[in-house]
Nucleic acid binder design. Sequence first.
DNA 1: TTTGGATAGTTGCACAAACAACTATATGCC
DNA 2: GGCATATAGTTGTTTGTGCAACTATCCAAA
Lengths: 146, 146
Amino acid sequence: MPNNQFKKGELYSFITGKASTAIARRLQKKFNTAGLNITIEQWSVLYHLWKQEGISQQELCNATFRDKPSITRLVDNLEKLNLVKRVASEHDRRINLIYLTKQAQKLQEETMALADETLNEALETVPTDKVDICKEVLQIVYDNLK
Amino acid sequence: MPNNQFKKGELYSFITGKASTAIARRLQKKFNTAGLNITIEQWSVLYHLWKQEGISQQELCNATFRDKPSITRLVDNLEKLNLVKRVASEHDRRINLIYLTKQAQKLQEETMALADETLNEALETVPTDKVDICKEVLQIVYDNLK
DNA sequence: TTTGGATAGTTGCACAAACAACTATATGCC
DNA sequence: GGCATATAGTTGTTTGTGCAACTATCCAAA
């Protein structure tokens, strides 16, 4: 039984992702405390736009592992907050290219620092090599199922 | 820099829990394909009730890492589906004890088999010792932040 | 050049999550 | 006993997610 290493009692955490839920909640609280009026999900979209802006909504779907309606609404809300702009592509009028506003550019440094802080709190006392193995396993899980 | 082992590019997956999202979606699809009309979140509540029924909503909050309103509504929906019953406690009238219906008892075996199957698909090609380390790290993360 | 299929994005609906504010009940202290 | 405080649960609101159905545009083949 090669991959049957889960006892029943351990199923639950893996499926429900309690660890990532805890990380996301902690980071959200840091955003709120800092007076940053954005959600973790909105931040995750900005995160990819900071790496590269001017990408389509479809590309944001792939990057964030969300479906098209989810991205439509996240972009809606980010637009309401004046953090991104939809710009119609010139060669393909089906496509919206998403650009950051100046206001969103200002958020990068502060929110990334809070994210770093959160991960350091999460991984306190965990040796580096175990973290690396954990990341590796989660990446394989994602690749196996996506 | 003891716990600074995350490069920027790796932040994202850890916070958004792409792996657990992928697992949950796969399991949800298996439920749907099997004609089982329940959500992963409802299943996670049943999961704890199969281990021990007749516990309070507050105990379900602790077990599932959800807040009270979330449990209220999950129990509402499970009651509508005739899967659980609220029974007022006799010694403390603030408390609802949650019991499984016969219909819910019948779901245990089939859904647990689908969950096992999902985890086997997720962990295909991952050696057991790495899975153990991954579980250990996620548990520490949860304990550090909860 | 038209037409049929693919792709990008939006909208409607049901379900879930987080927070705040609320009701009802219990408990501890004077 | 009576009151302050804590605890259990509910409700309202905003935001996000997944699915299905829809519109608009593009592209390729007849």
